[in-house]
């Protein structure tokens, strides 16, 4: 992720605060769509697609990085079709229950919110993001916590891969982790990542870290950021207020 964030593109150069505010606004707007508003939501897709285009980050990279979380997000609405059976729509002779529509809406909401967060993190360096949070007067403790969590997630991932590699090397021909090893694997993982987190934290203390990061200087707020904020706000308001796809469809189909 750090590498993606260190690249350069018009999107990367935007002010971190502008990107943060737009992303939050976008996610709130997406979440506020009514539960059957599937068509309206599709218009919201334009925003992440535009950002992917401008930042030069590939959509596939996004889905690859999010492959662990995506299924979880999609699983949120799977019960809906069983709970809500009232027919909401007929396509030819097939009756589509409201539950299916609300499930799809929920899934799309989740995916859109994830994409927006991914784009934010992938185009903005974590420390400048934290610096702009500080500027918004978010308490230093919270920001530091966020930054440390971000680092510790890396530690955890490292440990998991090192341990499963060590396991695989001594368990040839075995696929995955044998059930009998799960307990000790998890226990060890916890201990090891706690140890490492502790040592990393000491290493930071030893180099003069108190309770706040020496945040990087944030670049000045330039015109492109203002333009970005204004266009995004206008687009989000429009897409939220008007069901664009339906409107467009209405022009052709009567």
């Amino acid at each position: 992720m750090e590498e993606l964030a260190a690249q350069d593109s018009p999107v990367h150069r935007l002010h971190p605060l502008a990107k943060l505010l737009v992303a939050v606004g976008y996610i709130l707007a997406v979440m506020s769509f009514p539960k059957y508003a599937l068509t309206g939501l599709f218009a919201m897709l334009l925003y992440p697609l535009a950002l992917f285009q401008l930042s030069g980050i590939r959509v596939s990279t996004c889905f690859y990085k999010l492959r662990v979380i995506l299924p979880l997000v999609c699983a949120v609405g799977v019960a809906n079709p069983f709970l809500d059976r009232a027919v909401a729509l007929r396509v030819g002779t097939v009756a589509v229950p409201g539950g299916v529509i609300s499930m799809l809406t929920l899934m799309l909401k989740g995916v859109l919110a994830l994409m927006a967060s991914f784009l934010l993190v992938a185009t903005t360096r974590m420390d400048s993001l934290c610096a702009s949070l500080r500027r918004l007067r978010v308490p230093g403790v919270l920001v530091t916590l966020l930054l440390l969590t971000y680092r510790y997630v890396g530690v955890l991932v490292d440990e998991v891969s090192a341990m499963s590699q060590a396991y695989a090397l001594r368990a040839p021909g075995q696929r995955g982790l044998h059930i009998s090893a799960w307990g000790s694997f998890l226990g060890q993982l916890l201990l090891r990542s706690m140890d490492r987190a502790q040592e990393l934290y000491s290493a930071m203390l030893l180099r003069g870290f108190h309770d706040h990061f020496h945040y990087v200087a944030i670049p000045p707020f330039r015109r492109d950021s203002a333009v970005y904020m204004a266009t995004s706000a206008a687009f989000i308001a429009l897409a939220r207020g008007v069901d664009l796809p339906r409107l467009l469809g209405g022009l052709f189909v009567r």
Partner: peptide, 25 residues
């Protein structure tokens, strides 16, 4: 203090970031 395990010594994304961390603090 140079730790016995360098993995635990470095916590910033790049080498340079790590080197300026202390002095900046």
């Amino acid at each position: 203090y140079v730790l016995q395990d360098s993995d635990n010594q470095m916590f910033m994304p790049t080498v340079l970031e790590d080197m300026v961390f202390g002095p900046c603090n």
